[in-house]
């Protein structure tokens, strides 16, 4: 991946980022490149159907943390109606979900739980970081808040706003559907990159 994480030889940089994978480094499939299965015509068509069905029925695990969760509830209610895009089935169990909308600020105490829930979700799975706090810590740059959930789980879509309005969340969902349709891979797992593990994380 071209990410130099080996700082043992040199003098440690005090300002080295805690997060080693930036969004700019997120590997993306260039436009026009074919997915790996491109050689097999039948499988390509099957994959297209699979992707279509995956992006049309994204089932989110209900991971409401704070303020943004209320806007997420609004998005699933009658006025905004996220079910137009097939994502209204909020599952209480991560085993039945393939999308995690992290709605709200993530505290240090909650971070292992988030990771645990993420690990329980079956592949393929995607993550939307909803709101400023989930994306970067927001106004809470302090001891208690993880400065962005991308330090804990790989995030596909960041939705800005404090809190984002439901239409912004729906736009983020549409972007994720576009991403799935184009077979863009998710960013690398931050824990795999930094070599960290959380209690209960599988592998």
């Amino acid at each position: 991946m071209g990410i130099d994480n080996d700082t043992t030889e040199r003098r440690p940089n005090p300002w080295a980022p805690v997060q080693y994978v930036t969004n700019a480094q997120t590997p993306r499939a260039p436009r026009g490149t074919q997915p790996p299965e491109a050689g097999n015509i039948i499988l390509t068509q099957v994959n297209k159907v699979l992707d279509w069905s995956r992006r049309s029925s994204l089932w989110p695990v209900s991971f409401g943390l704070a303020c943004c969760a209320i806007e997420m509830m609004s998005a699933s209610a009658s006025r905004w109606d996220i079910s137009r895009f097939g994502a209204e089935v909020f599952r209480a169990s991560p085993r039945q979900a393939d999308l995690m909308i992290v709605a709200g600020r993530l505290s240090v105490k909650m971070a292992p739980v988030l990771r645990h829930i993420y690990d329980q979700m079956p592949d393929p799975k995607w993550v939307i970081a909803m709101g400023a706090c989930a994306s970067c810590g927001g106004v809470f740059n302090n001891y208690a808040i993880v400065q962005g959930v991308d330090k804990v789980v790989p995030v596909d879509i960041f939705v800005p706003g404090c809190p984002p309005t439901p239409d912004m969340l729906i736009y983020g969902l549409n972007q994720l559907q576009e991403k799935i349709a184009r077979r863009m891979p998710s960013p690398p797992d931050p824990l795999a990159v930094t070599g960290q593990t959380y209690l209960g994380s599988e592998g």
């Binding site: 805690v18 909650m110 971070a111 292992p112 739980v113 960290q196 593990t197 959380y198």
Partner: peptide
């Protein structure tokens, strides 16, 4: 900087 991994009380 929290120690890595921070167990978060679990």
């Amino acid at each position: 900087v929290l120690p890595s991994p921070h167990w978060g009380g679990q």
